[in-house]
Design a protein around this nucleic acid. Sequence first.
DNA 1: CGTGATGTTGAGCAGCATCAATTTCGGTGG
DNA 2: CCACCGAAATTGATGCTGCTCAACATCACG
Lengths: 266, 266
Amino acid sequence: MRAIRYSTPPPPGRKSNCLRPTRSTPRRPAILPRNCQNCSILGTPPFCTLSQKALRDFDSIGICRHREPHAVLFHEGLPADHLLIICSGRVKVTASSSNGRLFLLRVAGPGDILGLAALHERTVHRVSAETLAPSTIKSIPRADFVRFMGSHNDVGRIAALSIAREYTSALLSARRLALHTSAAGKLASTLLDWARTDDGRDLPTPANLPISFLMQLNQEELGSMAGLSRETVSRLLTRFRREGLVDQSDDRMTLNNPGRLEARYR
Amino acid sequence: MRAIRYSTPPPPGRKSNCLRPTRSTPRRPAILPRNCQNCSILGTPPFCTLSQKALRDFDSIGICRHREPHAVLFHEGLPADHLLIICSGRVKVTASSSNGRLFLLRVAGPGDILGLAALHERTVHRVSAETLAPSTIKSIPRADFVRFMGSHNDVGRIAALSIAREYTSALLSARRLALHTSAAGKLASTLLDWARTDDGRDLPTPANLPISFLMQLNQEELGSMAGLSRETVSRLLTRFRREGLVDQSDDRMTLNNPGRLEARYR
DNA sequence: CGTGATGTTGAGCAGCATCAATTTCGGTGG
DNA sequence: CCACCGAAATTGATGCTGCTCAACATCACG
């Protein structure tokens, strides 16, 4: 596996000591027109299932922008004054510690909503979000969203559902980090959880049939998702491969026999 | 520290092989009258902040029961057909793995709501809940709650807030399990997170002043919260005590200098 | 005073992080 | 087409940390 790296160079980091804003600073991306009433992901569980009338109102609030890979959408610790909806693309959601370690919570995709929990709790963001692929992101100011929620009955319920999704994903992470002592167990369950939530959304887990999903992370990122070092991930993946439990081609990861993978490395 | 163990004997386990239901099976606890409009925790963030009118309706749905310590309120894997509200007492929320390991997610208290996320997602419970102390629990059937949510505008929003709380707690767990490599770091941050959410609800963390909180768990349970073995917890607590970072008396745990604890064992 | 639950302390070992060297691969430019 | 570069993956060697097993101490309670 070699994860897709989009051509944009990695984020500038702190190489430049220039204090003045330079022209190379990325400009504010252009505003795109947006029409939720006529969208390809219409009907996907969260907001995209609103009534026609609500969708019209929904189109009138917020702003839609295109974002390049490696664009930081928000950063943990900053106040959550906007709500983000992923119209297309992929976004990785991370938390970091003061000593430089990184924890990758999940990879969010089209239809996912970011910042809802922090917005409801009126706190700062507890995670950071960064695009992995070219993405289209709709951004709604807090106040506008609260007004929107007040004027449509469904919205509160739908927001609750969306946060419940975030919750489940966080819970699964905590569960697997706490319950699995071995590195193999952590990696296996990370892959299994991912496959099951990514593939078919919450379909009853198919028995021992192969599942495959888009793996847009390199081994280092996968490691920071499972709480393991890069090298350990590499060693384990070759082991899984040798045992015929997984296959990797291009950017797809296939779990050949989920049941066996789970049983052997629980 | 010696955690309070309430006199009720531990759950029967699988000692009895008797297949017939015996008389020693705990009887359904008696239904208690409930009046939310006149409750001591009125005003606590989640449901207890509803309008007078909504509270009246709220009193009319669901059933309130007293529960002894070690009573299982629901178990992971079972369908989430009821919503539980803790009126008084303490409830521990856990997840378990097939090989017998236990993960303690949090200790919920008065005003906390259990089962909201699973109820919204229409899935099975992903955690189990068990009383730690004598508790009063209000139970609301799914359908009644959905109806209630439909007829009051605020309820959806408040449900969202409550799930956001659950989310934050799960996220903090995952974060700390993933970001801290050392056992000391895991235990320290477990204590810090707990103190900060339990003490004053979401007050801005007071600088280097002592925080204390009710520690109703024994070292084994604390270990299953931090992802550590019982023995490691014991060793670390004596170390923390020797360094003057924590004090334990009866069932209270005091963090003498949260800032230093965090800095030293991040 | 006996019993069972909980906490303390020690010894040994396995597993994973870390450091380090090398290979593979994709892209870029000559 | 080839040479070159950098990023990512692979593989090996080593040391430390925390789990496990085990023995014992302490406490609450009847």
